[in-house]
Design a protein around this nucleic acid. Structure first.
Length: 818
RNA sequence: GCCGAGGUGGCGGAAUUGGCAUACGCGUCGGUCUCAAAAACCGAUGAGGGCAACUUCAUGCGGGUUCAACUCCCGCCCUCGGCACCA
């Protein structure tokens, strides 16, 4: 049988014509299964690395269909945003043009690989029928106070000329272009994701079918820590400064306080300070030198004494208050208690400015080493110099001291999170406009829901300048205040692309709905998503934002589930020459020539066979050859049927046939369990390869009647169908089946055929294999052991020794111990 | 520094959860076919030693538990990801 690209086309046309992947969401005759693959940015055409994602998804979809599920497999385009816009700029075309050309191209690619989608549900985030609802969701957040504008230090990418969310800064660089980000103080729009920190964290525990690594990354990102907020009274002033600490056990070693210059107390403290001028100069200096990870390596800790004192509430001693440049405003209270003996940052600072260092953890050499410590000891230990708490272990002391503080009103137990609010405004053209209007008399006013969408105007100039390009479009800016009707101006920033993608999985259920973003009743029956598939690069970004938006919609009673994705699979990257595929490196493997030369199934098979799908894998053209050879070998086996003599044969199956029948059933069983497990496509495929090998072996070693051979060929291609759907359909048709494989059911194995009477087991002497014997599993243990001991090779190995012990493990081994 | 994942032939990777290590594929070597080559097919293939029957050593390193360890325990080393002045 010839496998050509016409075979691919034939079946792709058939699936499209028969609408086999189109789903009636109202159909309740079958259990639902929502399989979602992360939709692509149409910023360039796809390469084999991208293909892995869709091929995995398609294998799951086809498998689940044959298991009798009503499978929803939608696809769409994450079409707004930096990637497409940057590419458009580079190629000197409009973003819309660039985006829609790519959508067309990628769609062709996906179709040419035989990936099955319900295209009737296609969503495109840059079209008004979609972004109307993105804006609508913004308004719901705004109404509830979850969307707000504030001035803050934000991450600024000097190359993309826009602000970025914390999540989009990857080790101090822009997620898109890798330029080092800067800190800028700007008035920007935020979503209050911090309000959901606790739920985002604790609900991770309900996500049993998410990879641990993704959950851990989110956990770390949310960064919850237990501690005590301690109130430090000020000397001579009836006020306190609150400091959060995770180490209340070190309170007796707190020898000074350090404040960020923005701390609300700073103004009052320095008012009558003798060195006020100096302090103000210091503040001016550090104001323009915000902390950022890019500066970390050569960041010099600096500070200035305010000449004011606070009281350590436990030691009752007065401790100096400093203003320092290493205190974060966004975390805790913007003020910290400093324990130089047990915190390396405080140690560095105290050493520089000659502040007292008092050891309170650990017992060794406390007298001699004071002031002469080489470094801070940050671990836990036994408390010293800590009044009645001395002698306690850190763990216990934390609790006891916290309790003491609460009863004496010096502090309160609580938690802090590293998670920051999500910065969603962008000074870029290619995004959904933020539906807000500024009015001279009414201030900031949301656009009325019935006036959505705020259309993104077509523009001539969209190059990033640091100001949103919309700033220059008078017709866009000038509007009427939704409240008072007077002249007003529109917000010109657009929304982060991640807002668009944080709810698209809901839109697929009601893609053409005109009055609502989605129909809640339908969404509630189809979600959560049963299987989500995508790259691990979204472990924090998209997957955290979506969880947040979903929880918000839950709180609005728009959905009745708190987590959008029940099961998550993150596939590994395909690398070439040890590096991620990229145009700049010139190591991109384009799928087109593969499809042309070997057909879609060869590419699909190789991609799935190359290794465990969750791990990175190195692309090798030789591997592709192997997949091709296997397909040819399997097709040749199918061809032997044509010349094989048939007829009724009532004889008992011979040894060759029995081996083959058994192999068919064990293969069905193993492939099924590989697919049911963690998508072990690589081993599933290797098992089908073994079945093909067994078929040739049986044909070579004895007569195999046509019926059994036919059954073998059928099993091979049915089992391969999720991976190589085109040739599987072709063979299925050749075998006389009228219906598509997608209408057939996944094969069942029969345990009867797997029962073994005769097995070969190994005989070991002192743990080393000496020989093998055929045994009957029904033989008593004694008989098997006796037979093992009678073996020549065993006798030889035993020599004059007699066995001390004989161990028989059913159907596996006999071990003879001397 | 902290957290997570991993380390098995020349290579990608298997191993029923403690029971015959290296399945399956790639590569390499040998053979068949051919005027020849390619393709295809068949066979061999962890490393060392031995004419041989055999034998020794091998799952990052070092210990331990066990009749038996890639698998479990203790202590290290290395690689890759994530976070990183978060008090």
């Amino acid at each position: 049988m010839n496998y050509t690209k016409e075979t691919d086309k034939k079946w792709q046309n058939y699936w499209a014509k028969e609408k086999v992947f189109n789903v009636d969401t109202k159909d309740s005759s079958k259990p639902k299964y929502y399989c979602l693959v992360m939709f692509p940015y149409p910023s360039s055409e796809l390469h084999v690395g991208h293909a892995r994602n869709y091929v995995i998804g398609d294998a799951v979809v086809r498998y689940k269909i044959t298991q009798g599920y009503n499978v929803l497999s939608p696809m769409g385009w994450d079409a707004f945003g930096l990637p497409a816009e940057n590419q458009a700029i580079k190629h000197n075309v409009y973003p819309q043009e660039w985006t829609f050309n790519n959508i067309k191209r990628i769609k062709e690619q996906l179709n040419s690989w035989g990936i099955g989608y319900d295209w009737a549900r296609e969503v495109t985030t840059c079209l008004p029928d979609y972004y109307t609802w993105t804006q609508w969701i913004f308004l719901q957040l705004y109404k509830k106070g979850f969307a707000y504008r504030k001035e803050a230090f934000v991450n600024w990418c000097p190359s993309c000329k826009t602000v970025l969310a914390n999540e989009q800064v990857i080790t101090a660089s822009c997620e898109r272009c890798s330029t080092k980000v800067e800190q800028k103080k700007l008035k920007q729009w935020f979503f209050k994701i911090t309000e959901y920190a606790e739920r985002l964290l604790s609900d991770l525990e309900t996500l049993d079918d998410w990879p641990q690594r993704v959950k851990t990354m989110q956990q770390n990102w949310i960064g919850k820590s237990w501690g005590v907020e301690i109130h430090f009274p000020l000397e001579n002033i009836t006020s306190t400064i609150n400091c959060f600490t995770t180490r209340p056990d070190t309170i007796f070693g707190a020898t000074f306080l350090a404040l960020n210059w923005e701390h609300p107390c700073v103004c009052g403290l320095i008012k009558d300070s003798p060195n006020r001028g100096e302090i103000e100069a210091f503040i001016e200096k550090v104001k323009n030198q915000p902390m950022s990870a890019s500066l970390l390596d050569n960041f010099e800790k600096e500070g200035i004494f305010t000449h004011k004192y606070a009281i350590n509430p436990m030691t009752k001693r007065r401790i100096p208050i400093w203003i320092a440049n290493y205190i974060l405003t966004e975390y805790g209270t913007g003020a910290i208690m400093c324990v130089p003996a047990h915190d390396r940052r405080d140690f560095e600072f105290a050493t520089k400015y000659g502040l007292p260092i008092i050891e309170v953890i650990g017992i060794k050499q406390s007298k001699t080493s004071r002031h002469r410590l080489k470094e801070a000891y940050e671990g836990e230990g036994v408390l010293v110099n800590s009044a009645e708490f001395s002698g306690l272990e850190s763990q216990e002391a934390k609790e006891k001291i916290a309790e003491h503080m609460e009863t004496h009103n010096i502090g309160r137990r609580g938690f802090n999170y590293k998670l920051r609010d999500w910065l969603i405004s962008r000074q870029r053209y290619w995004g959904a406009p933020i539906p807000i209007v500024y009015c001279d008399s009414c201030g900031q006013v949301p656009v009325a829901e019935e006036n959505l969408p705020v259309l993104l105007p077509e523009v001539k100039e969209f190059l990033p300048t640091g100001q949103s390009p919309l700033t220059y479009i008078e017709e866009f800016i000038q509007t009427k205040c939704p409240k008072c009707g007077k002249a007003a101006q529109r917000e010109t920033d657009t929304m982060d692309t991640f807002v668009d993608s944080s709810w698209y999985y809901l839109r697929y259920i009601s893609p053409h709905e005109k009055k609502f973003p989605f129909i809640s009743a339908d969404v509630n029956t189809w979600l959560p998503v049963d299987q989500y598939i995508g790259g691990v690069e979204h472990a924090i970004l998209h997957l955290m934002y979506s969880r947040f938006i979903n929880k918000f919609l839950f709180d609005c009673n728009l959905v009745n589930f708190t987590e959008p994705f029940r099961r998550l699979f993150t596939q590994g990257m395909i690398v070439k020459d040890g590096a991620k595929m990229s145009k700049s490196k010139g190591n991109v493997v384009a799928p087109d020539y593969i499809i042309e030369k070997y057909g879609a199934d060869t590419m699909r098979l190789y991609i799935l066979f190359m290794g465990p799908p969750q791990k990175d894998a190195e692309w090798q053209d030789e591997g592709l050859q192997g997949a091709w050879r296997f397909i040819q070998r399997a097709l040749r086996l199918a061809d032997t049927l044509k010349t094989h003599k048939g007829g009724v044969d009532t004889r008992e199956p011979n040894a060759s046939e029995r081996a083959l029948i058994k192999k068919i059933h064990s293969t069905i069983k193993e492939v099924t369990s590989d697919l049911e497990g963690n998508f072990q496509f690589n081993t599933a495929i290797s098992r089908v390869m073994e079945l093909v090998n067994q078929a040739y072996k049986s044909l070579g070693s004895g007569f195999v009647r046509k019926e059994i051979l036919r059954e073998t060929v059928d099993a091979i291609f049915v089992l391969l169908a999720p991976f190589t759907p085109h040739i599987s359909e072709e063979v299925n048709q050749m075998l006389g089946s009228k219906a598509s494989l997608l209408k057939r059911r996944w094969p069942q194995w029969n345990e009867e055929y797997l029962k073994e009477e005769e097995v070969e087991i190994a005989v070991l002497v002192n743990g080393k294999v000496k020989d093998r014997i055929q045994i009957n599993v029904n033989w008593p243990k004694e008989e098997i052991e006796k037979k093992a001991l009678e073996l020549e090779k065993v006798k030889k190995a035993l020599g004059k020794n007699s066995p001390a012990k004989v161990i028989y493990i059913e159907k596996r081994i006999v071990n003879i111990v001397l």
